[in-house]
Write a protein that binds this DNA or RNA. Sequence first.
DNA 1: TTCAAAATGTCAAACGTTTATCAAAATTAT
DNA 2: ATAATTTTGATAAACGTTTGACATTTTGAA
Lengths: 326, 326
Amino acid sequence: MATLDDIAKLAGVSATTVSRVINNYGSLSEKTKTKVFSAMQELNYQPNSLARSLKGKKTKLIGVIMPGVSNPFFGQMVQEIEDQLFKKGFKMILCNAGNDAQKEKDYLRMLMANRVDGIIAGSHNLGIEEYQKVGLPIISFDRYLSDNVPIVSSDNYQGGELAAQSLISSGSKNPQIITGSNRPNSPTNSRLTGFKDVLEKHDLSYNLIELPFSSSPNIKSLKIKELLTNKKIDGIFCTDDLTALLVKQQAQALNLQIPTDIRLVGYDGTNFIQNYHSELTTIMQPITDIVTMMIDLLLKRIDDPDCQLEKNYVLPVKLITGGTTI
Amino acid sequence: MATLDDIAKLAGVSATTVSRVINNYGSLSEKTKTKVFSAMQELNYQPNSLARSLKGKKTKLIGVIMPGVSNPFFGQMVQEIEDQLFKKGFKMILCNAGNDAQKEKDYLRMLMANRVDGIIAGSHNLGIEEYQKVGLPIISFDRYLSDNVPIVSSDNYQGGELAAQSLISSGSKNPQIITGSNRPNSPTNSRLTGFKDVLEKHDLSYNLIELPFSSSPNIKSLKIKELLTNKKIDGIFCTDDLTALLVKQQAQALNLQIPTDIRLVGYDGTNFIQNYHSELTTIMQPITDIVTMMIDLLLKRIDDPDCQLEKNYVLPVKLITGGTTI
DNA sequence: TTCAAAATGTCAAACGTTTATCAAAATTAT
DNA sequence: ATAATTTTGATAAACGTTTGACATTTTGAA
């Protein structure tokens, strides 16, 4: 691979001059600029990022830690992140941590080793300490990591409220919630609270079951079937759209009419759901805005590591009404 | 951030010794090893990847260029790549090139600049020349890039055959194909050929329409509706599952029974489809195997840039029969 | 004790840049 | 033509490692 010296030789100038051209500083004549550029072209030269960064330049790399990318929600989010970062001249190292704490830790170390300029974290299996000693600008999606890591999220409480309202106004008297695993500081908790609060206002009670994210769709389906046959439920709020799809399937299999017998509300409202399951009433998280916010904050922190940021940035969600509620 | 010298000082040994510990060469006593390790621990030290790579060590970075990750097929593939790479100690720089040639070119340059050890390419908007002058080990998914870039793919021809057979054996007499945009060396071409060849053997003819990947689901739906109302079609083969979902929706909306009025076969068979749309008959591409193959070949090339590889590696696909054919 | 082997240390070059300093050459203005 | 200015060059240090050559110390055994 061609180096700066090769370019200098080919262009018939000094290495210093080439560097000046690349970094556009000092005074340069048009003539030498062209000479250098065409030499770079000819040799398909790319300044060695490693060497530049070593000398103190930014790497222009951002580490993105997510649970995974095959889930449409995170898929869309990652895509959006990538897209927006690229437009700002950054590249992304994607880390799918799954729910593997060790993997997340390894990735964190790796990102440090690679001197990324910053980290966007959307997967959180680790304790606070791990994140504290990273010493890099970090922005978190939807979960508390450490005191100086700003959290960007959508309004989970409002989402819960909207879901409840939508079930109630379409006639549900015996609503049910299906959540993923309910860990202590999981964002779905606020969804629950919002949901609960609205129900209480209407003097309604509700049932709740937990279907861990990690369990397979088949197992979930089974439990859902059980639920639908045994209980006299007339409305279901799932804290993610995919589970809502399973509910829909099972309801159909049991010949329960949606929305007359069962009203159904999902959560997330990804493009995928909007495009391929527009019948589903759901709460849409503003992925694009969330990402814009995260990147904005992150770049601020990168520019000025000491800049003060809020602890929380909460963006509004939106109810998308489909045929599964009236 | 702590450097090697800091560790040396803290551990009370020389920098050389620390390096020896890190790289595990030369002779070392257990005692110093422990001293060094605990110093590294204490300072949360990570050897600077940039410096190491500059000195000639591998970066352990692999560039992955894909059209995008919000599509479940590529989402799953990227996830699989990430997973397998991680297990082998590599990290991934994900590049979503969309169908933007300029972006793909930019990414290619960036990957060179970052001295990735190799590239997996699944998005191909660029001409051969661009890929030829990269000068890095590359493996391509499903498309021809350049003479010395091995192609890993699943058996598109066989996929077409299976789709046709499945439509025919479930009673279709007037099959229709819906493909994405049919570019000259697109893999869907062989799917078409396989499909056609089987039909010919059965003295059947078929219709074809193209719905460019880039067009929105709404537009596609409209065209599908048109198709379903105007023609007397009794079977449809979509060269991707998502389009098949749209067909299913439109058929239902038009009160056409599946599979009695219309038989339907999709393509790809991602986990997502298998989990959430198991009713769909589809051709499953062996994503895991494809990825294993690609990584295997890539690492071989990285180890020995001159090693001879085949031009094509074709893996078998599998028919998954669901309720949309009998 | 003596000697070999094992364990460290010292020193320096190298990887490909960036950047500062100083000097020289080329260009422009007067 | 002279001075002032602009452009370029030469040199070197620095970024944080790795690695080799060589020297020194420690250890353990004969």
